[in-house]
Structures are given as C-alpha cells and as structure tokens.
Nucleic acid binder design. Structure first.
Length: 209
DNA sequence: CCCTGATTCGC
DNA sequence: GCGAATCAGG
C-alpha cells in the first residue's frame, strides 16, 4: 500500500479527530500503526493538543567515528514547527469535534442545577450513531457465533481484566465457560461480544399482553 | 499485559 | 519516503 492522496487525507482527518494511530491504521488497512505514526511525523503534523510527552533530547550519541556520519547538526529540526507557535485557545481535553447543535432553543437537556451541587461534568457526547433498530445487527450475531468457536473457554477463575467475560453455555452444566478472548479496551467483553452486549438502546417493551 | 506516540535507521 | 524495531510512558 502506498500513501495516496486519498489515504493521506484520511490519515490527516482521523489524526485531527484524535483517533489513535492504530485506529487509523486499521481504518486504512495495509499499514501498521507504526507506518501511520511515521507518516504523521513526516507530514509534520505531530503533536496534537498537549498530549505529547515529547521525548527529551536523545542527545547526540557517541562517536560517529569513520563511517558516513555527516557532521551531526545539533539544530536542524522542523522548520515549520518553529514558525507556527500554534496558540491553543481551547484546552479542551476532549478532542472531539463539538457536536453541532443547531438548535439554540430550549429543548436541550442539561438543566444546570443552580448551585449547591458539585460541579457536574460537562456531559458526554451526543451518542451519534444510534440506529433506531433495537435489534442486534446480523453481522454482530454472526461474529459472535464465529467467535464462540475460537473462544478460549476460560473458567471463572481464569478470567482477568483483559479477558472477555461473556458467558457461554449453560451454567448448570459442564458446558459452561467464558469467552476469554482479548477484551476491547475499557470494556468487559471482546469486540464481538461488545457488539451484542451494548445495544443501542433496548426497547424492552414489557411484553405486550 | 494491554495500549499510546516518538525516534531511529536500514532500506 | 517508508516503516519495523525500539524506546518511553500510561
């Protein structure tokens, strides 16, 4: 795969959106996160908001000796960076593009409690893609079935923070185990199970009787 | 252990 | 220019 304009564009966009290099690599396909990071650097768009610990000076290493080591120029870094001391108006930790709320009218939630309350957190994102369907997507179901074939079949005691805790089988029988595949970070389940565990919203109607 | 980005350097 | 290997940190 090569860095076509299109791919570079996607890279730029996603990087700007705060997507991680691995996510971008996954999206692009055919490249590793290393490749993405390398490209990001070469493109000169490195540090996103203040999240870069910035490797301290690696320090000019030892002796170049006789090899082809042109005189190491101490200062020869990014020319562009220096010229643009980007002022950072918003220290917002969230790198999400502010949701467009064209409706200035009331309607919006978030009734700000007058006071006497601990500062309420700004509130989460507007949960964008919410398919109205309360059904599990066919793909999700399919992948679950697929996954259950390759699951690690862990026992309760074998579960860790990083193993999918999705139960499979009947607890009343020996045929019961936990998925055990690597969890999706921050979630209790693997990707496939997260897909079915966190449904958009369940319209669990009380049975219509 | 999982992840993140940063840097180096042979290609 | 590219990106694997490596590094440093969370």
């Amino acid at each position: 795969m090569s860095w076509t304009d299109e791919r570079v564009e996607t890279l730029k966009r996603m990087w700007a959106e705060g997507q991680s290099a691995s996510q971008i690599a996954k999206e692009l396909g055919g490249v590793t996160r290393n490749a993405v990071i390398g490209k990001v650097h070469r493109l000169g768009l490195s540090n996103r908001a203040g999240a870069a610990p910035a490797r301290p000076a690696p320090e000019a290493a030892a002796a170049p000796a006789a090899k082809d080591k042109p005189a190491p120029k101490p200062e020869a870094e990014q020319p562009a960076a220096a010229a643009a001391p980007a002022p950072r108006p918003e220290p917002a930790p969230a790198s999400r593009p502010a949701a467009a709320s064209p409706a200035p009218e009331a309607q919006s939630a978030a009734p700000p409690p007058p006071s006497s309350r601990k500062a309420i957190v700004p509130a989460g994102q507007p949960l964008p893609p919410q398919p109205s369907a309360n059904e599990i997507s066919p793909e999700a179901l399919a992948s679950v079935r697929e996954v259950e074939k390759t699951a690690k079949r862990l026992t309760l005691m074998e579960l860790t923070e990083r193993t999918c805790k999705w139960p499979i089988g009947d607890p009343a029988t020996d045929d019961f185990w936990f998925c055990g595949l690597p969890v999706q970070q921050g979630k209790p389940y693997c990707e496939a199970h997260v897909g079915v565990a966190f449904q958009p919203m369940s319209a669990r109607r009380d049975r219509k009787r």
